[in-house]
Structure formats: C-alpha cells, structure tokens
C-alpha cells in the first residue's frame, strides 16, 4: 500500500493558494504539493505519495538502523564465510 518515494525539494512556490514545489527524484523533477509540510526548506528530503509530500525525512533517525548494524558487525562476518547455510 501507499507507494512513498523520497525526493529532494529544489524550490517552493504558491499556486492556487497552496504551497507547491519542485521535487527532484534523482534528476526526475515533478511538481509536488508541499502544503502538508509548510516548514520545508529547499535542499531537504521529503517522502512523496501521489504528488503530496507527507513528511520531511529526518536525517538523524535515518541513520539509526545503520548504527544498530554497526554494533552487530562481528556476528555478520562470522556468517559471511559460510554462505551455504
């Protein structure tokens, strides 16, 4: 359900009384409604669903899982030597 794709806000403008913006998805640029994330700044990443940004992506929280993974590093290496299992 609910395809959500991260994209980078490149500019913002008002159109028909709501906040809109151009969002780049790795170079593919679409006009996206930003009215639900009014505090967004160009350069920030947002999660986009059907042409609407639903949330700003929090960089710090985005890193958490990888910090968890770093703490698991040693276990992984043991197992990598035995890919057959």
């Amino acid at each position: 359900m609910c395809l959500g794709v991260p994209g980078k806000v490149i500019d913002t403008f008002r159109e028909h009384d709501i906040l809109m913006g151009k969002v780049s998805f790795d170079g593919v640029v679409k006009k996206i409604c930003l009215d639900h994330v009014p505090e967004v700044e160009p350069g920030e990443y947002v999660l986009v669903h059907v042409g609407f940004a639903l949330s700003r992506i929090d960089e710090q929280y985005a890193r958490e899982v990888f910090e968890l993974l770093d703490s698991m590093g040693e276990i992984a290496e043991l197992k990598l030597e035995d890919p057959g299992s």
Binding site: C2, G4, I18, C33, D35, H49, V50, F52, L54
Partner: peptide, 10 residues
Amino acid sequence: FETTAPANAM
C-alpha cells in the same frame, strides 16, 4: 488508506 486521504481531501 489514510496515506492517500489528505491528497484526495486537498
């Protein structure tokens, strides 16, 4: 679902 509802409401 609730994800799409705000877009449709808008």
